[in-house]
Design a protein around this nucleic acid. Structure first.
Lengths: 380, 380
DNA sequence: TTAGTTTGTCTATCGGTTAAACTAAGTTAT
DNA sequence: ATAACTTAGTTTAACCGATAGACAAACTAA
């Protein structure tokens, strides 16, 4: 049954629009909100009053007059609540605390010397608990926890398969949810990275972007129309396993010639990523050529992505960012020669702007977005 | 500026819901619509009355009583208008006339022995004009024209590049629009096919489907959340040019190792499609093996599509359908061994149900959909 | 015949938006 | 200094569409 329209729906829509407008344009006056949104001044006034009562926005004195009465400036109350973002990596757990604007307030990093499920989860609980305790008191407290994990996650927040952790079928959502009694979102790290970059990084104001997370493997997060594309069971975006050599190397996924075997940070047959970086920075031919080859293979997959999605923006993130200067030209040249010209014209390729925080900020954003969508439904 | 909510929006939403419900469940009573949609009986009554006044639905006598007053059955008035769908092929132009339910009323096919722009367009105008004249008189007349073309079309309906017709930069939308003064939609044939299958064929009630049109080349239409995914400039879905052999055969697109070079109906190095079909039906090893190889390569690309989109359904259509029995098992085996198991579980692979009419029906649907979305906006 | 059920309409009310009047508080011109 | 103009924000009345519930119509079942 589709959602039918009634007066409450109208109010919910308009309240969202007003809140979003204030969030994006703080500080701003009621009159300006009315002009920007097209909503009547009176409507804006009453909705703003409710948002103030809800503690989500603040009046912050008067602004400059432009020939008449001074406007009362409104501010999004970014510290009315806090969100926790976690990146569960293979060798470390990183955690941040953000305000409702997604600005980082606190940070924590713990090395992981095990992949044992129980030990990792114990450490995860500890870092989250510590972050909860470090959060300032606020009206809404911790509004949620978002976690990015290196693996395949279904729509219920269950980790189906995390090869680097050697985990299978871990219902992380239930575990964390039961422990803290807070809203929890679990997603794979590439999806979270895509969300982070679109909200706070290189992809702001873009609608269709593809985020490519390149480290040991390759993961991709696909944002379509400003929304994460999840596929039927929440399993979309495993483009690391697209075939680029029909009879290529065998992959642990069962396929042959997967992209990530040729284009990831660990793709070089002789040197690992750190060694390659050292060689390249020393100007050694082995390092330079190693990265050039990786860049070429990245370009091959990126060309397919461009032809498939015709995105505004492709963002390359995670470990490989550290080799940006060594691989950029190889990528650009390969894409220029391999992708369809009309498609290429509309696509920009960039490295992640948030550096190593795309996933963390994206994870925290899940919590913030969840809070507001709930808020909009219930607090009308 | 986002659309803000007001009473008109509410009415538009509800009127759409009522109309859609009647379209999908004709014949149906007002009471049943109310129960299905959750809308109040009175609301349904008044919206139905308006739709009757608009000529979009009809009262068709009473139905069976279930222990009380007999219901008045409502019918979608499918002949209140007609739509034209055109498939501009390389060797022929096919045209259909449908009612507002997308049911074919008239059909026309004209061979094309030239790819000359002016001659083709003259023929195109002639077939459309003939179809307009064959349409029964109706309240809304011809509500629009949809055209599927074999090439890259941008969001304005301009053909950027149609290799098989040898056309570049033809503003077909303006040409047809000026000639007939009707709403016109131009899209590539794979997109139109995807829409056709989702609306009327194998993909009904699915949300995420990928339609693969396999003939001389390979085109793909991607439906996400029930909507066609168009990309930033309307150029999405050229997966025929994804790389499956990094150093494979040279493609006219500039890339190497494109999928369509290995998996299209014209991919066999020695035999053309017709010959292969004849050989296979004669039980000749060359034909059987030829199709098996094409099926394997199709399976490689389909595996990438599954891992990328995790769609509910993949539909294979166009010319290759005629070889269904020779390639099915090769496709299934390859996909089973190459795609990620979790993803594969949620995806079904089928051949087009509308046979050679996916594109035509999809093109006509563009016109119908355009009519209703306009109608909903203006006739409230 | 009577009681109960189902369909569809009608009426009062409610909650939202809007336009417009109004109050408040500034600036600019003379 | 004062009048005229501007801009900001609130209040009021009117409007519109949905809803709940009463009602009439038309049927079935006992």
């Amino acid at each position: 049954m589709k959602t039918t329209g009634d007066q409450f729906l109208v109010k919910k829509i308009n309240k969202s629009i007003v809140l979003d407008t204030i969030r994006e344009h703080s500080p701003i006056s009621r009159a300006a909100v009315s002009k920007m949104t097209g909503l009547n001044k009176g409507t804006v006034s009453s909705l703003v009053q409710e948002l103030i009562d809800n503690g989500l926005i603040l009046e912050i004195g008067t602004g400059k007059s432009s020939g008449g009465r001074k406007p009362v400036m409104l501010l999004f109350h970014e510290t009315a609540g806090y969100a926790i973002g976690v990146e569960l990596g293979v060798s470390s757990i990183r955690t941040i605390l953000t305000n409702l604007n997604g600005e980082m307030i606190e940070e924590d990093q713990r090395p992981l010397d095990t992949t044992d499920r129980d030990q990792v989860i114990e450490e995860l609980f500890a870092t989250i608990q510590a972050m909860i305790e470090r959060a300032p008191t606020s009206r809404y407290g911790i509004v949620g926890i978002g976690i990015g994990v290196p693996g395949i996650v279904d729509e219920k927040g269950q980790i189906l398969f995390a090869p680097n952790l050697d985990w299978e079928h871990v219902d992380l959502h239930t575990l964390v949810s039961d422990q803290f009694g807070l809203p929890v979102t679990i997603d794979n790290e590439a999806n979270a990275g895509a969300v982070g970059e679109l909200q706070y990084g290189a992809g702001r104001s873009a609608l269709n972007i593809v985020y490519i997370s390149v480290s040991e493997g390759i993961g991709t997060g696909i944002m379509i129309g400003g929304e994460l594309f999840r596929g039927t069971a929440g399993l979309s975006g495993e483009m690391g396993h697209m075939t680029i050599e029909a009879n290529g190397r065998k992959c642990r996924c069962g396929n042959k010639g997967c992209w990530e075997l040729y284009a990831s940070a660990s793709a070089h047959p002789n040197f690992d990523f750190k060694t390659l970086l050292r060689l390249a920075s020393d100007g050694e031919a082995d390092g330079i050529r190693g990265f050039y080859e990786i860049g070429e293979y990245l370009g091959i997959g990126i060309s397919t992505i461009i032809n498939t999605f015709n995105p505004e923006l492709i963002i390359i993130g995670n470990q490989i960012s550290r080799a940006e200067r060594y691989i950029t030209s190889a990528i650009q040249q390969t894409v220029a020669s391999r992708s369809l010209s009309y498609h290429r014209k509309h696509t920009t390729i960039r490295f992640a702007q948030l550096e190593t925080r795309s996933t963390l900020l994206g994870a925290a954003y899940y919590a913030i977005a969840g809070f507001f969508s709930k808020d909009r439904a219930t607090l009308v």
